[in-house]
Every structure is written in structure tokens, then in C-alpha cells.
Amino acid sequence: MMMDLDMVALFEAELLLCKVGPDQTVAVLSEGQVRADYAQAFLVAAQRLGAPAFHLNLPSVPSVGPLHQVGRTPLAGNRAAIEALKMADIVIDLMGLLFSQEQNEITATGTRMLLVWEPFSVLRDLFPTTDLRRRVEHGETMLGSARELRVTSPHGTDIRYRIGQYPVMTEYGYTDQPGRWDHFPSGFLLTQGDDGAVDGRVVLMPGDIINAFRRYIQSPVTLTVEGGMVTTIEGDGMDAALLRQYMDSFGDPRAYAVSHIGWGLNERANWHHFAATRELDNEIGVHALAFYGNVLFSTGPNTELGGTNDTACHLDMPLRGCSLYLDGQLIVEDGRILPPDMRAPARPVAA
């Protein structure tokens, strides 16, 4: 396999942000031939930093049931592989363990984990910075002390979350703390509403995104939420029908649970990305999840925050032009970040 030196250099810089050095063991986890170039480049990058490294490659398992099932991977039930990963200081996850019991078991031992999934162009263009981390962690402090989160929009969204039962999760693109998971690249934060304590409605409007579909909403959709569950999905266009049919296809009522809520802080992430790329099948869609000022509304599993809902149906729905309040304090106003310590630096004006 030809080695991409630019890829090795970028991954070496990423491992440095993660404080990898000669005293750190790096495990690279992959399946089949998926991201084989990433696996080799990370191993070389670790070697250049003097860090012991090993590659754990598992056979791919054919998918069963609906596509985009989360939390179900070839690592499930493989005790030898799980125990080997626990011995590493950091796991580079090229498989996609998010929402899995295996991820939680591994990070609970103090091993940190970095999910790497996006195309190389996205990794390069959204490479994390220490300033992004600072701004995300400022948001973490504010969100962690709040007890109510409210989201509104001019189109009729008005939903309230009682919060505090679950922790705040930050994603800024690297991890240097024991047991911490992150996604390279990233740039947002989130939490989960208290069990049964999310009520209101969310109105999806044209331009909002359903990440699992790699699709922009074309027609209004109204989701009614009662006691933390989506009880109705209403709309005259195809989007409402797609949502209903997709969620029904899992045959799991927990698919309708409201999951995490948060907002995006990455000023280099582009709302228009899905419309401008041909690499949709190879990415989760960090541009959509992290673009500056979005409100990230999600349904489905909550195991990443310590909950018990492990349904395989997960829908991230980044919303544009919404306002978000913490205990009545306006944090995001119509898609604009208000707290000075969370605002992105101004982009230089071209001469």
C-alpha cells in the first residue's frame, strides 16, 4: 500500500494533540479493508512519535435489519479483542463503536478513544484547535450548571428539557484525558434531558438536516414530544413520511425517545457541505453536526451519556436559525452565538 505522507503528518499532529508519546500505547481498531489507509498511517504516525502501537483488524460482519444501526459492531462478544484494547492508552476507532456497550466498557478502564471516520479532506479542513476546545469547554461549564434548556424558533419550535440527570459531553476533536472519548474532527457539546422530562414540539424546516439520510429537509415536519418521547410526526411532504417509515422499520418503540441536545461551535464547518460533496457514503457528517450556531436535536439511544436506551435507531437533526436558552439565559439567538467566550474569532477579510 502506498503511504500518503500528508496523511501521516496530519495524524502525527492529531496524536500530539492527544499527548501521545513514548510512554503511550496506541491501538488502531478497524474491520476488513475499511479505512485501511488510515490504519497504516496512524501506525506510522505513532512510530514517528516513539509510541508502541498495534493494529487490531476484525472481519466485517454483514449488516442485518435496517441500515445505519448504531452500537452494533464486529467487536461485540469478542472478549480477547476487548481485553487487548483495554491495555492501550488510546484506541483509534476506525470501526465506529459509538453507542456500543464495548466502547463504554473500554473507556471505563481509563483507555481514551478517538473515533476517526470522515474523509481525509474533512479531517484536514476541520483539524481541531486548542481555541475550539476552550470555547467548547466554556459551553460545558454553562450547560453543566443549568437545570432547564429551551429551544425555540420563528417557525413554531418550542421544546423544554429538564436537565442535570446526565453529564455534559464535549466534542472538540482530540482527547488527552483518561477514559475520554472524542470524534476527530468535531466542535460541539451536548447533554440529555432527564428521563421523561422533555416536552414540546420541534418544527423541522427546509434547510434543516437529517444526518442519517444525508438530506436537507424540503417540507415542514412537526414532531410533538411528550414525556421524552416523540408521539406524532406530522407533515404533508415526503420528509414526514420518510421519518415515520424509517423509525418504524426498527420495530423498537425506544427509537422515538428524545436523545441528546446541544449546539455547534465550529466556525469552519459548513452547513452546505452535504450539497457540495460526493463523499456522502464515507462520512458521519461532522460539518452538519458542528456548524456554528446550529441546535443539534437528536432521537434514539443515550448510552453515550450513561443512559439505558440502546436502540439501534439514531437520528441527528441539526437545526438552523433556532434560539437556545439555559435557565432563561439566551445562548444561541437565531443561530448566532451570544456568550463572548464561546464566540469564534472573526475570519480575516480577504484583501
Rank of each mutant, 00 (worst) to 15 (best):
A88Q: 03
V202T: 00
L17G: 13
A146L: 02
N270K: 14
Y325G: 06
E83L: 02
M2W: 14
L132N: 05
V136D: 05
A350T: 12
D4P: 02
P66G: 07
R133E: 14
R48F: 03
Q69P: 02
S60C: 01
P66F: 14
L296N: 08
Y256W: 09
Q329N: 14
R135V: 08
G193S: 01
E12I: 06
R135N: 06
M317H: 04
P348I: 03
A197Y: 03
G156P: 07
G264L: 04
A88F: 10
N309F: 05
G237F: 10
V349K: 13
R162E: 15
Q218K: 13
D310Q: 07
N104F: 13
T130D: 13
A84N: 01
T25K: 15
G328R: 02
H260Y: 07
R124G: 04
N309T: 03
L324H: 04
D176Q: 11
D327F: 08
G32R: 11
D37F: 15
R201I: 00
A197M: 14
A27G: 05
A81Q: 05
R336G: 10
N270A: 12
V230G: 02
D208S: 04
T109K: 10
D194M: 04
A36T: 07
N294R: 11
D341Y: 04
P206K: 11
L242N: 11
F184Q: 07
M169C: 06
I233F: 01
R343H: 03
Q218P: 00
G300I: 05
V20I: 11
G173E: 09
G65Q: 12
L265V: 04
G179S: 05
V221M: 00
E283M: 15
P22N: 09
T232G: 00
V91H: 04
N270D: 13
E118I: 02
P206N: 04
D182I: 10
N270Y: 03
A46N: 15
M317Y: 06
V151M: 04
A27W: 00
T308F: 12
V286L: 15
G65T: 10
C313S: 14
V221N: 01
L315W: 02
L85V: 10
L97Y: 12
N211S: 15
E137H: 02
V61S: 13
H183I: 12
G285M: 05
R112S: 09
D176G: 03
A241E: 14
G193D: 12
G71V: 09
T111S: 09
R343I: 08
M342S: 05
L94M: 11
Y292G: 03
R133F: 04
R147S: 13
W181R: 13
E140T: 07
H287M: 01
V230Q: 01
G306I: 09
N282H: 08
M95E: 13
G50R: 00
T222Y: 00
A346L: 15
R180V: 14
M229I: 01
G173R: 05
R201Y: 00
M3T: 15
Q24M: 15
A346M: 10
L75E: 12
P167V: 02
L330Q: 02
R244F: 03
R72W: 07
R35A: 13
P59W: 11
